[in-house]
Computed example of a mutant assay.
Amino acid sequence: MTDDLLAIGAFAARSRLSPKALRLYDRLGLLAPAYVDETTGYRYYRADQVERARTVALLRRLDMPLTRIAEVVAAGESDGVRASALLAGYWAGVEERIAAQRTLAEYLRGRLSGRSSEMYGKFVVETVDVPEQVLITEKRHVLAEELPAWIGASLGRLETAARGCGGTTGVPFVVYHAEVSPESDGPAEACVPVADEQAARAWAGEQGRAWQTGVRVEPARRLAYTRITKAQVAHPQILAAFEAVEAWVAAQGLQYAGPCREVYFADWDAAGPEDPVCDVAFPVQPPAGA
């Protein structure tokens, strides 16, 4: 029965996996032996399983979770293109995570060294005048870890609703009416500018309180802002961008004219970690009497 099969030791040597790893992958369904002796419990493998075993070993070197490895390997049995796409998707997520961690490490180095102010020089702060806008909005109390999912979902709902409100007239943004952190839940307000105020108010009336929706007219404002990348948007490293704008506002002798905001001008899903996607901004005005 086992004449044409490899015992686990020989197969381990061929596949460059330890017998312990082979037993683990068997239990997880990643690499089942071709035959198990019912009396001795010895495992035997076919020679043509070596390629699968080596693929598993290489994927593990990418720190891919075992469940994801199982998905990639299973796809590779019948559809190499799909398996390759699954690997590409996993690796894109790894690169995004590493980019976010890199910016977090830079932020923490500045904090720990007491040289936070030196970090502000990395951010270019400018001003822009924004005209009066009719906004459809969705407000929610949300903690920092919940924020990314909520922003994507809420802006998606609002941009869909904007089609019935004359279409969008500007880029979406999120206003922070109070601090959002792991301990503080805001609230935050997602906003999409639209063309038709009457249609927007009719939409808001139909929505009721389902998503805490509303309509408001925001007056013309001057924004002090700095542009950041997708990797820099993550909390808490985004705080460095907010602090840089705050330092600039203080240096210019300006006053705040409203709550801070994040303005999302790029396609988030299509953007890479180092692509600019967002402006961190504060409404500002000259001091009284100036």
Rank of each mutant, 00 (worst) to 15 (best):
D185P: 15
V192R: 01
T226S: 10
V174K: 00
P172M: 04
V175R: 14
V180T: 07
C165T: 02
D185K: 12
T213R: 12
T213L: 02
Q232I: 01
H177P: 03
A195Y: 04
A202T: 12
V215L: 04
R222I: 08
G166R: 01
L223F: 13
G152D: 15
A210L: 10
P193V: 06
G164Y: 00
T229R: 07
Q212H: 14
A153W: 15
G214R: 05
E159Q: 14
S184A: 14
V174T: 11
G152S: 15
T169E: 11
A200N: 01
R221L: 15
A195W: 04
G205S: 14
G156V: 08
T169Q: 06
A224V: 06
G205D: 14
G208R: 06
A195K: 13
A178F: 06
Q212C: 11
R209E: 15
P172H: 02
P172A: 11
S154V: 04
A231D: 08
E197Y: 01
E206W: 06
A224H: 07
T213W: 00
G156P: 09
E218P: 00
Q212S: 14
A188C: 09
S181V: 09
S154W: 07
A190E: 13
A195T: 02
S181L: 06
T213I: 00
L223E: 07
A202W: 03
V174I: 13
V180Y: 02
S154M: 10
T229A: 09
C191D: 13
A195N: 11
H235P: 07
L223K: 04
L155F: 10
V180W: 01
L223M: 13
A161H: 06
L158S: 08
W203E: 05
E206C: 00
G152I: 12
A220N: 10
D185H: 12
G214H: 04
P236M: 13
G214K: 03
W203P: 05
V174D: 02
S181F: 09
V215K: 00
Q207E: 15
A231Y: 04
Y176R: 02
T168R: 15
V174S: 08
C165A: 14
T229Y: 02
G152C: 12
R201T: 01
A202H: 12
E189D: 10
A204F: 05
V233I: 11
D196E: 06
R221Y: 09
E159D: 08
A210M: 09
